[in-house]
Design a protein around this nucleic acid. Sequence first.
DNA 1: AGAAACTCTGTATGGCATACGTAAACACTG
DNA 2: CAGTGTTTACGTATGCCATACAGAGTTTCT
Lengths: 246, 246
Amino acid sequence: MSRDTGGMIRTVDLLWGTDSPRGSRGPRPGLSVEKITSAALAIADTEGIGVLSMQRIAKTLGYSTMSIYNYVPSKDQLIELMLDAATPPPPPARDGASWREELEDWVRATWQLYQAHPWVLKVPTLSPPVGPNQLAWFEAALHALSRSGLRGNEVLSLGLHVIGSLRGQAAMAADLTASASERTAGEFEQIVSRVVTEDRFPVLHTVIRRNGISEIGIAQDVLVDLEFGLRLLLDGVEEHVKRHLG
Amino acid sequence: MSRDTGGMIRTVDLLWGTDSPRGSRGPRPGLSVEKITSAALAIADTEGIGVLSMQRIAKTLGYSTMSIYNYVPSKDQLIELMLDAATPPPPPARDGASWREELEDWVRATWQLYQAHPWVLKVPTLSPPVGPNQLAWFEAALHALSRSGLRGNEVLSLGLHVIGSLRGQAAMAADLTASASERTAGEFEQIVSRVVTEDRFPVLHTVIRRNGISEIGIAQDVLVDLEFGLRLLLDGVEEHVKRHLG
DNA sequence: AGAAACTCTGTATGGCATACGTAAACACTG
DNA sequence: CAGTGTTTACGTATGCCATACAGAGTTTCT
């Protein structure tokens, strides 16, 4: 029996479809890992990961709660499967795109992915990416960076940097918009004006005065911030390459 | 009765100590918001936010579970209080530091803060920062950036960028080290060598070949990556300023 | 035929946040 | 001092949750 209750190996087997095959005995299974994963995915995408429970999944599939455990060893493992299922293969690089354009495209695609599946940002990463699609995205980012002229370890370093940065930005944006929608219109403005006084927080105060409060409270254009930062970062990369290797 | 069950206003009142004062009647309260917050903080810091429950807090304080609710309207609100309590006032800027050094110091200080309170990275931000200490950190970052020569909205934009980026990096690092500690020694290497083949993921494959697997699996020096990326970003800022405003 | 393997279900078990009712402590009123 | 309203603290209950376990029924292989 190679089925264990769910170590990392088992996760990988489930992700890559290399799990030990079921025997031919017993009743025909009515469910499948795929059915369960996609049902869970639908719930998470539309109603958020907060309402996702084994009971809920079972109910939408018309089975008992415990049936799920015949296919998936635990909820954590299921989420791992959902993560890879939520990630389509990355779009191929445009022909003739520079490494910068390639990376910028990658960032935008990832951003859209986070918009489509906001719950992805909420789940704690239990392991480094090992699913086929997750790895493909990683590969795509590194591919773009490898054309920049950076050295091998710099490619990896900056790749991780960009991924972490993007994830953080997206999470911040999601949290802010979520919290904004739960507030009554003037509430935040009222609080800010009460708390952010000129003597306590001078810079913040003038920034808010000049740009309006909405830019902090409602993060509708975090993507703009993201691209601005990315542009500066890539400028820095080009200069670095010119200086050290040019 | 100005006490509601816990809207944002109430949170702010609790954070700034401007909550409506208790009447003088009734038994002397044995607990306090501060006691509860610091007990909860101690648990989260040492054992992680996963084990933090109202029952657990009450037990360590020697009170019944429901007593807690006499002081704090909900667990979510309590976490908000913990967040601000976990954040000491930011260190003052060094005398004579350039804006770059000031920001780099800020990043390192924030990094250390995340190391001391890893659970901070796990809690979903329910609202924009409104606590005194959280706002002070925000102010400090913007202060450094405001000296860079960037324009007002660029300061805010890049400030949010840096914060989100830092948070994402730190979260990634924490997740990776956590998952690494739950793995047996060769397990990850075995998986990687099985899954990351040269034909499927060429760039990833060569990077791993050249740098060793540990750099992905065990994120011990994410701080190095972070500072590398930050350096490039700030290079980009300087160039941007020179070009547009110099 | 019978054993082995498998699916599916019902029923715990132990956890969680928190609503509600109640008893006791205290301060202020008369 | 008696009474009254306020507040603390507690026990209990509700309704979630993941998941362990023990059958019962189904299918295939020996």
